[in-house]
Design a protein around this nucleic acid. Sequence first.
DNA 1: AGATACCATGCGATTTAGTGCGATATTGCC
DNA 2: GGCAATATCGCACTAAATCGCATGGTATCT
Lengths: 275, 275
Amino acid sequence: MQAGQLLIMTKMETEQNQTDSALPAVRRAEILRLVKQLGQITVTEMSARFEVSLDTIRRDLDTLADQGLVSRIHGGAVPIDSMASADLPFEERINAHQIAKTNIGRAAARLISPGETLIVNGGSTAVSFAASLGDLQRLTIVTNNLSLPAAIPSSPVSGLYLIGGEIRSGARVTVGPVGFIGTRQIVADTAIIGIGGITEDGISTSQIEEAAMMADMISAARRTIVIADKTKFGRLGFAVVAPLDQLDVLVTDEEPAGELKVALEAAGVRIVVAS
Amino acid sequence: MQAGQLLIMTKMETEQNQTDSALPAVRRAEILRLVKQLGQITVTEMSARFEVSLDTIRRDLDTLADQGLVSRIHGGAVPIDSMASADLPFEERINAHQIAKTNIGRAAARLISPGETLIVNGGSTAVSFAASLGDLQRLTIVTNNLSLPAAIPSSPVSGLYLIGGEIRSGARVTVGPVGFIGTRQIVADTAIIGIGGITEDGISTSQIEEAAMMADMISAARRTIVIADKTKFGRLGFAVVAPLDQLDVLVTDEEPAGELKVALEAAGVRIVVAS
DNA sequence: AGATACCATGCGATTTAGTGCGATATTGCC
DNA sequence: GGCAATATCGCACTAAATCGCATGGTATCT
């Protein structure tokens, strides 16, 4: 290897050492994450990203497809449920990952009291949370999540507000100022935040504008509940949102371990493990 | 923000730019979704939307038809059940209604020039309109319609903004101040307004807040295009939005008659009948 | 330690899927 | 009947998938 490449390697260390010399299983896990995040990947893209041959990626995708984690299509792969909703009835939409998110959503919903005002951000975990609010009453909900109004039971909600702003191509969230509905400033009891990653340094996500909104949401609420499945542990996104001590509760599907657990306890974050 | 994060951002953007075009199977799934939503699509529209040749779309439709997912017709395709249940007069009527809306949407789309800024309101006719914008470019669209982002082709849109505000239970629109995105005031070239009813006294709808928004939309735009199928003729909703002389164009599926026609001509409203 | 089996990987050759283009036939409409 | 839009067919070309095989590393057993 040459000196110039070494220099670049060093700069990109945080992101690159996940992808460059990854073990096969780690690479497949990363591919799975990318499929879900982007909605669609091609064999060529993944080959370039992980610097392995096209064949290796194809074998990876075939493996993931055998496990029912992605749908294999000519040229790449898509998330398992993205086509099921189109052609097939919703039989096969349930996989282990989905169940975990549903459990996390339910556990988070139990932390909410009737009459609260909530701020909810984008992401599928947040949708699972919203779908579990059926037992509560008189809630006021503010969100930037376009999928949420369809998922939410209508009975417990006395007010549902969408944050206005730009919609990036393909995204299901708006990007805009959090603190205002129209021109009126708002304050909430609880912020429910789905994230891209959590480490001892704080919570993070992959989109810079999303990170800014999440930080605003946390500021606009008196209490912050982060919802994250175990795959988010130790993952550091590009944009850091907030340190752990700004959080009040972490709802997840598995007890954190090691440095993360120590840091969470030190920051006084209550940990709720969904069963 | 720190320099290191900026560096990584730049790297990320380069990689995600490759995700522009849809994989073949994804394209077919998207076509299927659009057929179901719009009730009818043409080969030409899909070709413009996905930026592939007419032949490719024809083969896609043939494939979907072989799988029994759509019915192939000359020039395009329709949902599979729209012809199967043709013996039931009720279903037939609904479908005919849907086709009328699609045709109106297309005719309205032809009145738009590249680079325009549009304000679009709620309703299914507006969704059909948005789905027909594939030939245009550099559009900026502002809407309160939650169904619109999913229906709109991504290629012609340079900016898509959602008006923030309250979401009434079950509705797919927001109710909020039109003139602002966040805290910035906006002005548009054209307002595209779907309505509840039109008489010689003006246009109207059944929701009072919706009427206020429609009036604001008309005020915020230099030109107003009203889209309404013939069932809206002579119907007077609960809340009157505006008199006819505030309108510029009416796009519909049948030439108005009687007093309405006279009043429209007197008000200088151009009438476009979709074929 | 050494031999063996196993796994992941990459490469080349072949097969298949997807795409676009031109020429010709068909359809729908006036 | 004539015209324009749409379909169909055959063809060439590219991207992707498949298969067999060789390589290098790792784990396992003796």
